[in-house]
Design a protein around this nucleic acid. Structure first.
Length: 433
RNA sequence: CGGGGAGUAGCGCAGUCUGGUAGCGCACCUGGUUUGGGACCAGGGGGUCGAAGGUUCGAAUCCUUUCUCCCCGACCA
C-alpha cells in the first residue's frame, strides 16, 4: 500500500479527550474516530489490527475444536425474560422497540440465544460435547465508558459456549479453552496471567480471568514469575491453574504461598474471562439431552469471552514508547514501513519502487511512505505508526548502495545493501510464529 | 449514579471575570527556498463561538433552559 493512496490521518496534537496512552496513540495514528461516548469508527489502520487479532482468536478457537457461528446483534426480549435476565441486567442493556412495538435489545452477551439454538437441534448425549463460538459486536450501556476502545459501550467480543453431559466433561471443555486462551495471547506477543475470578452476574462456580501485563494496566497483579515464561508448545491447564496469581485485593503478604523471590508484581489489563456455570441456563431455557438411559438431563455449560476490540488498546498499552506504538509483528497493521526520504530524487525513487515491488512479491505487508513531506515528519510519523521494521531510503546511503533498516522495538539501525535488506526482513519475519 | 471539568476553524488552545467588527499554534491551499529527525519565507482559505430562549443600542462574554463530551469514584470483556 502506498501511503499517498491510503487513508491514514496522523495527528501531531494530542486530542484533549484522550487520557490514556493507547487512546491517544490510536487517535494520533488514525486508527479510530470517536463517534459518541464509548462508540467508535474503525479507520483503515485500526481495522487491520482488529482483523488480525480477530483472526488469531479465530484460528486458536478452531484449533481447539470450537465451531464458528454468527448470532445477531439485535435480539428479542423473549428469551431474556425466560432466563430472568431481562430484569436482572438492568440499565446496562440497551433496549429497543421495533415498529410493531415488540421489545428488542442489542445483545450484551449471548447465553440465551445460544442455548435456544442448542435446544432446537441437539437432543442426544451422542451429539455432545459441542463448543460454539462467534465473534460479534456487543453493546453494554456502561455508566461510564472510558479508556478509549478498551471500555467502549460497543465492543467486539469473541464468546463461546460449551455443552457437556456431565460436570466432569464440562471441566475438560473448560480446561481446553483455558489452554486455547493462553496460546491466543502468547501468539499476540502478550504475557497472559490467569487468575481465579469471582463469577459475577454470569453466575457459576468456576471462573478464570485473563490479564495481560502492561505497565499502564488498571489492576495490580501478584503472581509466580514462572508465568512469564510459558512454553506455548507445552501447556498444562491444571498445572497453570495451580500457579499463584492474585489481584491486589486478594493478595495477602502473610498468606502468600510462594517465596518473595518467586513473586512478581506488575500491572495488568483484563482481556478474557471464562466461566463454568453448570445448568443455570440450560434448565431455564430447555437445554436438555437424553442420556443413554433415556433420561432428560440439563447440559453443563461454560462460556468464554475474549475482548477483541479491547485487545487492540491493551496491546498498545503493553507495547509503546515515547515516540509511538511498537507493534508486535503478529498484530502489526503492516509488517514493514518503506520510507523514501527523498521522493523527488530519481535514484531514491527508483530504489524505493524496486523495494516496494520486491516486498509485495515476497508477500510482505508493506506501507510505502511515498509522500512528499519533510524528512522529520516522515520519520516521526513512521515511528508513531510503529510497524516492526522500517526500510529507510535516502540519497547519502544510496550512493554507497546502502539502505537503512530500523527495528522499531530495539531502535536498532543497521545499513544493508538492498538484497541483504530484503533477506534480513524475510528472515526476521519467518522467525515469528 | 454521586462528585468535578470542558464545549470558540480539521486538531490543540487564548479571548469570557470587566459586553463594543473572533484570535494564536499546528494542519490545509498558492508561490518560492530547502532536504537524514515533526523545515523556512511570502501570500491565502476556513467560524451561525454546542443548541434554544432572554437581557441589551450591541452578547463568545451576562441570565435561564437544554444537549454533548471528558475526568475521579462505585461496576465490568
Amino acid at each position: 500500500m502506498k501511503f499517498s493512496n491510503y487513508f491514514l490521518p496522523t495527528l501531531k496534537n494530542i486530542p484533549a479527550d484522550a487520557e490514556i496512552i493507547s487512546h491517544q496513540l490510536m487517535i494520533r495514528s488514525g486508527m479510530i474516530k470517536q463517534s459518541s461516548a464509548g462508540i467508535y469508527s474503525w479507520l483503515p489502520l485500526g481495522l487491520r489490527v482488529l482483523k488480525k487479532i480477530e483472526q488469531i482468536v479465530r484460528e486458536e478457537q478452531n484449533k481447539a475444536g470450537a465451531i464458528e457461528i454468527l448470532m445477531p446483534t439485535i435480539q428479542s426480549a423473549d428469551l431474556w425474560i425466560k432466563s430472568g435476565r431481562y430484569e436482572e441486567y438492568g440499565k446496562e442493556m440497551l433496549r429497543i422497540k421495533d415498529r410493531s412495538d415488540r421489545e428488542m435489545l442489542y445483545g450484551p452477551t449471548n447465553e440465551e440465544l445460544i442455548t435456544d439454538i442448542f435446544q432446537s437441534y441437539i437432543n442426544s448425549y451422542k451429539d455432545l460435547p459441542k463448543n460454539l463460538y462467534h465473534i460479534q459486536w456487543k453493546f453494554r450501556d456502561e455508566v461510564r465508558p472510558r479508556f478509549g476502545i478498551m471500555r467502549g459501550r460497543e465492543f467486539l467480543m469473541k464468546d463461546n459456549y460449551s455443552f457437556d453431559l456431565t460436570k466432569e466433561d464440562a471441566k475438560i471443555s473448560y480446561n481446553n479453552m483455558f489452554k486455547a486462551y493462553i496460546k491466543t495471547f502468547l501468539r499476540m506477543g502478550l504475557t497472559p496471567i490467569s487468575l481465579r475470578a469471582d463469577t459475577g452476574p454470569i453466575g457459576g462456580d468456576l471462573s478464570h480471568e485473563f490479564q495481560i501485563l502492561a505497565n499502564t494496566g488498571e489492576s495490580t497483579l501478584y503472581y509466580d514469575k514462572d508465568l512469564e515464561s510459558l512454553d506455548p508448545q507445552n501447556l498444562n491447564p491444571e498445572k497453570l491453574q495451580s500457579y499463584y496469581a492474585a489481584v491486589d485485593d486478594h493478595h495477602n503478604e502473610n498468606q502468600c504461598p510462594i517465596s518473595k523471590s518467586q513473586l512478581k508484581i506488575s500491572k495488568g489489563i483484563e482481556v478474557g474471562h471464562i466461566f463454568y456455570f453448570g445448568t443455570k441456563y440450560s434448565e431455564k431455557l430447555g437445554g436438555y439431552v437424553q442420556n443413554n438411559k433415556g433420561n432428560k438431563i440439563a447440559v453443563h455449560m461454560g462460556s468464554y469471552g475474549i475482548g477483541v476490540s479491547r485487545l487492540v488498546g491493551a496491546i498498545i498499552e503493553a507495547f509503546h514508547d515515547d515516540k509511538g506504538i511498537v507493534w508486535p509483528t503478529q498484530v502489526s497493521p503492516f509488517q514493514v514501513s518503506l520510507i523514501n526520504l527523498m521522493p523527488e530524487n530519481n535514484k531514491c525513487l527508483d530504489a524505493s519502487n524496486k523495494f516496494y515491488s520486491q516486498l509485495i512479491n515476497h508477500k510482505i505487508e508493506v506501507l510505502y511512505d511515498d509522500r512528499e513531506v519533510s524528512i522529520g515528519k516522515k520519520l516521526s510519523d513512521n515511528d508513531l505508526l510503529g510497524f516492526p521494521y522500517q526500510i529507510i531510503i535516502g540519497s547519502k546511503n544510496l550512493k554507497d548502495n546502502l539502505v537503512e533498516i530500523k527495528v522499531r522495538k530495539e531502535n536498532f539501525i543497521e545499513k544493508f545493501n538492498p538484497e541483504d535488506a530484503i533477506n534480513f526482513i524475510k528472515t526476521q519475519l519467518n522467525t515469528i510464529i
